[in-house]
Design a protein around this nucleic acid. Structure first.
Lengths: 220, 220
DNA sequence: CGTTTCATTGAGTGCGATCAAGCCGTGTGG
DNA sequence: CCACACGGCTTGATCGCACTCAATGAAACG
C-alpha cells in the first residue's frame, strides 16, 4: 500500500464526477494506492473512514466461519464505499485491480457536515444509493435463475462502465460469490449466452453485448 | 384504511421507543390503520412519505413481471419503513396483520431537518440500519442453506420481538419469499428443527426455542 | 518452455423445487 | 351441534437446476 498527499491531482480526480463530497475528499482526503487483491479494510475493523474510487475497482466481501464467501458489491471510478452504519465493518474491502482511492475520516466529514448541510445530505444520498443497490441484489439472489443472475450482472457492469466493449475487472470467482453461484455455473451461463449470440467474448475478461434486448429481457 | 389525527395517543405511541423522529412523527404525523394484507404503498408509487409501525407488523415486497415475489423485510413495533432513496418505491408495503402506523411527509421531515441537525442524523441512522439489514439479507440469500435460512429468520424474529414464546406474524408464504425458498421447503425445515428438539411449535404461528445454542449455530 | 493459475467442459450427485395428496383449524349453514 | 367447505400447512414422490468432482484447455509468468 502506498500513500501520498493528494494536492496536485485534486482537480483531475474530481473531474470524474463533480459533487460536494468529491470536492471535499479531494481537498482533505488522503490518496492511497492498493495492489490487486490487497485489503483496503477488514471485516470487524473499525469503520471510521470513508472511501472513493479514483482509479481501478473495488469489491466488498464477507466471509463466513467455514469459508463461504459473499461479495457485497463492486465499486468503480467515482463510487463511494465504506459507508457502513455500525462501529465496525461487516464486510471487508479489497482491490479488484491495482487501484487508487481517496480516504477521509468519517468524523472529519461529520464535523464538516455540521456547518454544511449539503454534506450531510450527500452522505445520506450515498447511503441511500447503497441501499437501493442492496435491494436489487436481494431480488437477484432470492428469485432469479443462474442465467438471469449472470445476465443482470453483465448489464449492470456494462451500464456503469459505459462503452461498447466492456472490461470485467473481476475474475469468475468474484462473479460467482456476488451471484450466489459457483464458478462452474457462471462459466456455463457465459458460454450459453455466447452460443445464443447474446454476448461475444474476446478473451475471458472482455465482452461485447450483441443482443441488448435479449440480455435485458433475461436480466428483467 | 382508516385515518385519524394522532393527538391523544401521541405519548403512548412514542413510549414504545423514545427518539427524536418518533416524537416528531407522533406530533406531526397522521395515524393510519390497515387491515391484514392491505397495501400501505405500492411498487412504483411516489416515495414521499415515511412510516413508523405503532402496532402490528408490516412486510415490504417486490413482484417480478412473471409473479415471482421477494419479501424485502419485516417491520415490527417502533420500526421505521418507507425510507427509499429514489423518487418511486421499488418495493410495496403491506400490512402483515391488522396494524397501525404513523405517517409523515418526507418533505416535511426534510424541511424540519434544516433547522434541527438531529433529525437529519436520525434519518441517516435509520437508512443505515436498513442497509445493515439488507447486507445481512444478501449473505443469507447468497450463501446459506435452506435450514440455515429458516434458523436465521427464527432467531431474528425472536430477538426483535423478545419474550420466551414467539408469535410469527407472517404465514409460510411470506417466510418463503423472504428466504428465497418455497413454502414446502420452509415447512420441512421447521419440522426438521422441531424433531431435532431445537424449537417447539404450539400451533402453526407460535414457537419456543428449546435449544438456543443449536439454533444460533445454524443461523451462524 | 515449463509451471502455475484461472477458465471451460463433462459426468454424476444432491438439494430444494414441483406436483400431488392428505391434514387440520376455522368458519358457515343446516 | 354437526356436516361440510375452504384456505393454509404438512408430508410424500419425483424432477431438475445448480453443485461437486474431475479432466482438459488456455493464458500469464518466471
Amino acid at each position: 500500500m502506498s500513500i501520498a498527499f493528494d494536492l496536485s491531482q485534486a482537480t483531475t480526480a474530481t473531474a470524474l464526477r463533480s459533487d460536494v463530497i468529491g470536492d471535499i475528499m479531494a481537498q482533505m482526503g488522503l490518496r492511497m494506492s492498493f495492489a490487486r487483491d490487497e485489503e483496503i479494510y477488514a471485516q470487524e475493523e473499525d469503520a471510521d473512514l470513508v472511501y472513493r474510487v479514483i482509479e481501478g475497482a473495488v469489491r466488498t466481501t464477507r466471509l463466513m466461519s467455514d469459508g463461504r464467501r459473499q461479495v457485497g458489491d463492486f465499486y468503480f471510478e467515482g463510487d463511494m464505499f465504506g459507508l457502513e452504519p455500525g462501529e465496525t465493518h461487516k464486510f471487508s474491502a479489497e482491490a479488484l485491480s491495482d487501484c487508487t482511492v481517496l480516504v477521509l475520516k468519517k468524523s472529519a466529514l461529520m464535523s464538516l457536515a455540521q456547518s454544511d448541510h449539503r454534506i450531510e445530505r450527500m452522505i445520506w444520498a450515498a447511503t441511500s444509493r447503497e441501499l437501493e443497490r442492496a435491494h436489487e441484489h436481494v431480488l437477484l439472489l432470492g428469485r432469479k435463475t443462474a442465467c438471469e443472475k449472470v445476465a443482470s450482472l453483465l448489464v449492470s457492469i456494462a451500464e456503469r462502465t459505459g462503452g461498447d466493449k466492456t472490461e470485467l475487472p473481476m475474475g469468475r470467482q468474484d462473479m460467482a460469490d456476488y451471484l450466489g453461484l459457483t464458478i462452474e455455473t457462471v462459466s456455463r451461463m457465459l458460454s450459453q449466452l455466447q452460443s445464443s449470440a447474446i454476448i461475444a467474448f474476446n478473451g475471458v475478461r472482455n465482452f461485447r453485448i450483441t443482443n441488448r434486448a435479449a440480455l435485458a429481457r433475461l436480466a428483467e
